[in-house]
Design a protein around this nucleic acid. Sequence first.
DNA 1: CTGTTAGCGCATTCAA
DNA 2: TTGAATGCGCTAACAG
Lengths: 346, 346
Amino acid sequence: MKPTVHDIAKIAGVSLATVDRVLNGRPGVRAVTRGKVEEAIASLGYVRDLAAANLAKSRTYPFVFILPENDNSFMIGLREEVLAAVVRSSTERTDIRIVNVPPFDPRALVAALNELLGEKPAGVAFVAIDAPEVREAAGRLTGAGIPIVTLVSDLPDSTRDHYAGIDNIAAGRTAGSLMGRFLSAPSTAGQMRCVAVLAGSMLVRDHRERLEGFSAVIGDAYPDIHILPVLEGRDDPVLAETMIADALRRNQDIAGIYSLGAGNRGLIRAVQRAGIASRPLVIAHELTASTRAALIGDVIDAVLNQDAGHEVRSAIRVLKAKADGLPVLAAQERIRIDIFLKDNLP
Amino acid sequence: MKPTVHDIAKIAGVSLATVDRVLNGRPGVRAVTRGKVEEAIASLGYVRDLAAANLAKSRTYPFVFILPENDNSFMIGLREEVLAAVVRSSTERTDIRIVNVPPFDPRALVAALNELLGEKPAGVAFVAIDAPEVREAAGRLTGAGIPIVTLVSDLPDSTRDHYAGIDNIAAGRTAGSLMGRFLSAPSTAGQMRCVAVLAGSMLVRDHRERLEGFSAVIGDAYPDIHILPVLEGRDDPVLAETMIADALRRNQDIAGIYSLGAGNRGLIRAVQRAGIASRPLVIAHELTASTRAALIGDVIDAVLNQDAGHEVRSAIRVLKAKADGLPVLAAQERIRIDIFLKDNLP
DNA sequence: CTGTTAGCGCATTCAA
DNA sequence: TTGAATGCGCTAACAG
């Protein structure tokens, strides 16, 4: 039989209430009594039954997810995953609230974060924007004992407890390797090939990091590939379409396109309509309805993906663990860089 | 406030015990009373608190994992993950026991399965062998109301409740696509390239399926690639090494190797020692210490992987859900085909 | 400072 | 066929 608080109380010769006090680090216990209790706890190898404790406290975990009001498929999918978690709330003892903020707006994010300082939720998850004032706001929250995890986009050098997202530099490197190998040198060597890069904005950290990884690999391992100046499509399908269409028109020998942001609907349309003899090799991010269709329809060659469902579930598990001061299963919480070809689509 | 059994009892005008009886489908309740209670349950939208129920029952989930005594790295890793779950048992209310069986031995597996018929665990997970007698044994277990999930290797057309593993046909197709693209046609077209396939045994379903997927893609999309007769290395590093070494010696123009089973240590040694000007392209399965090193050391080009930790945790979650008659979160339980290049190594 | 007591939501004897 | 009472392991008033 697993030892219980009663066993501790018996062995230490104290009451349940006292045991509870030392277990939960509450004041009002003499050092000696505390010692006796702790000794009993150690000797018994006691581990508290979290379920029972939560039942007694009728505890729920009030969590807040701050999401940007972005209308690209990935963000919509992410939001849906959070909503799915809201549905599961009753069985998971969570109480999840979504706070919306305008996208790419550090001040709005900071305001939302500050707001929570008074509310004191059991944890906060948010899509970070890499700015000093956000870092400070995050610091205030953790300073107030509120666990925070960054979602999808990280906030390095901050006090965040955890990052639920992929390693974007590695993602960029992976894209670079795939691009390099798929474009493997024709025997007519010495000839440079051009690759276009479509990003949302170089102000966003994920995009910068992906480009960094991509460029590094291409530069190191595939010197015969030339990366054209980055096109910033602001994650907007319409803008992306015109930019890619323009690029393909101006530069007939574009051999590949790496789309490291959103707005892929536009990219796909542009490639389809370009009417080039051999279409360029396309690698994009995030598996959505349109990238999936493009993969199947041979318009995109590979899609790198982060599993939004995994990210949300992971964020919740981590926030719970942090709220309870429990350790986290690192392997379970690692967000993979999924590589999808048309052959291994889920 | 979430409705509780007390609320139901009050509204239905009966006692807690009666509510409990109808909630758990136990006999000894008149049809009319049962009706009243069910009405109250529905009207309140009651959902039982599993944690509280388990506390009251001091319930644990006795699960059995049947694992083959295989000494390849993957199986060793799988076993370690089960052991890690055993460690977590106390906090997860599980009580996991490992049963060992000799590998590739249907009769031993059947015997182990039959054994459990008397023990009546709350669930069984096992690495299936695709044989009629195993199917029958599985049928007896599910017939006795014991949930079962197959692990790593499936048992199609059986009564198993769930399969915690990858789609091996898709894995083979993915390998085929990567092979085809990485080996993309040199401009000196019309020239056939040869690819060797190293398997463990064609008697094992996973291996057959991987080969099937691989061959299908190569045949359809890369007609200039010729697949050499399959080498069966019995998942044995030593045997694998001599077979690959032989093949490379006999057939100087082997452009690629697909290793769809285990024993990759041998394969790696053979490739390293072959001393060929340009080494063949190598795609292997399962990320282990040796394949990881080979990936980093540019001896292997890509590794397809199934996450053993995920498989084990998923199996446990599913068994719990089935034991409680609860639904499963399909997206969470889907085991991915991970593709690792040296760039996205975890 | 410490102990007693009454629940949290549910399951389960034992009586009636 | 039904109900009252007790307890699972833990927490939290409220007394002392």
